[in-house]
Design a protein around this nucleic acid. Structure first.
Lengths: 177, 177
DNA sequence: CCTGGCATGTAATCGGTTACATGATTGA
DNA sequence: TCAATCATGTAACCGATTACATGCCAGG
């Protein structure tokens, strides 16, 4: 995951490890935390694989600049257009890079995400009605207020995600609030 | 984390490891995934610490039942009322167990969560206006549509969370949709 | 009979954090 | 001068996943 984020960030241009961390923190940082302890080894792996190249600078700070190589760009684009297994965050991170994708692939992927999400929503709605039924039969439903509230949270969350996905699929003007 | 979830689930009563997994999957499972490979060792650790006890059943399936001991209940309640460091999910999981807490502690914790959330919201709103400013100065702002969209996602997400937190703090009737 | 669910557990491995070590530069 | 930020890197450790191994029981 981190390796692809790094490749994706380097699509913009040459950067140092330190700058890469700052860029990650201030963009996909809401969903993904990168520490130096994972970042530097990842950069080394990518260099070893020949996906990025490093240039040493002589600015005395021992700064090293990483540049995306053609193979790296290919690997990144292949990952981006490919299937996303698991992790809700992964989809968000992919979408962050969707400007690099053609409209057709974007539509396909967003359609897939929407489909999966709607499935999960239906599952959770089913759970909700089961819980509601069980709650109606016990004498003290108020004792389960917070348990049930996290269910509502999940529902709200999925609903919000669905509306957002639909909006960006149609490339609507996004206006928060 | 898993250890506390296990203790929390055992507050309801005696259960087997297998049942604990099912219970976790169908409740906090939206935020937290427990695999057998982490669950069984965790149960062993809790038993070694004397927080839970296990009773072997003779129903031939080799089923083992775990029961919360007084020390375990204490450890759980202490964790629940204590400070939550990091992880957005942890707060949600704690709230799931909030029915076990007294109203005063709940109000304190929910107030803290709300405070942190509002801070993050302000930070993200600041980022948004910076980005909006930068976007206005470039000739091709449409090339950054998806990058910006995840920012909006974050904002929507925090806003939803804020509304939800405020609602449960006032113990409002939660009506999804 | 045989599949699917019940039931427990271990070992290899992985991705990541935390803490540490080192040192240069910049600006109050 | 001193703190903050820039800048790179390693090692111990940790929590968890994945895959595997084992075996019982119920229902179609």
């Amino acid at each position: 995951m981190l390796e692809y984020i790094l490749l994706g960030m380097l699509m913009e241009g040459t950067m140092s490890g330190y700058d890469l961390k700052k860029t990650i923190d201030s963009s996909v940082g809401i969903f993904y935390k990168a520490s130096f302890g994972s970042l530097y080894p990842a950069l080394k792996r990518l260099t070893d694989k020949g996906l990025i190249s490093l240039t040493e600078t002589d600015n005395s700070k021992n700064k090293k600049l990483y540049t995306l190589l053609p193979g790296g760009q290919e690997a990144f684009l292949t990952w981006l257009a490919g299937p996303s297994q698991g992790a809700r965050n992964e989809q968000l991170i992919r979408i962050f890079f969707f400007d690099y994708l053609d409209e057709e692939t974007r539509q396909r992927l967003l359609g897939e995400y929407l489909f999966k999400l709607e499935q999960e929503l239906r599952t959770l709605e089913a759970v909700k009605s089961i819980v509601a039924g069980e709650l109606a039969e016990i004498p003290n439903p108020e004792d389960y207020y917070y348990r049930v509230s996290v269910l509502t949270y999940g529902l709200n969350h999925f609903e919000m995600e669905k509306q957002w996905l639909k909006a960006i699929k149609e490339r609507k003007n996004l206006n928060h609030e």
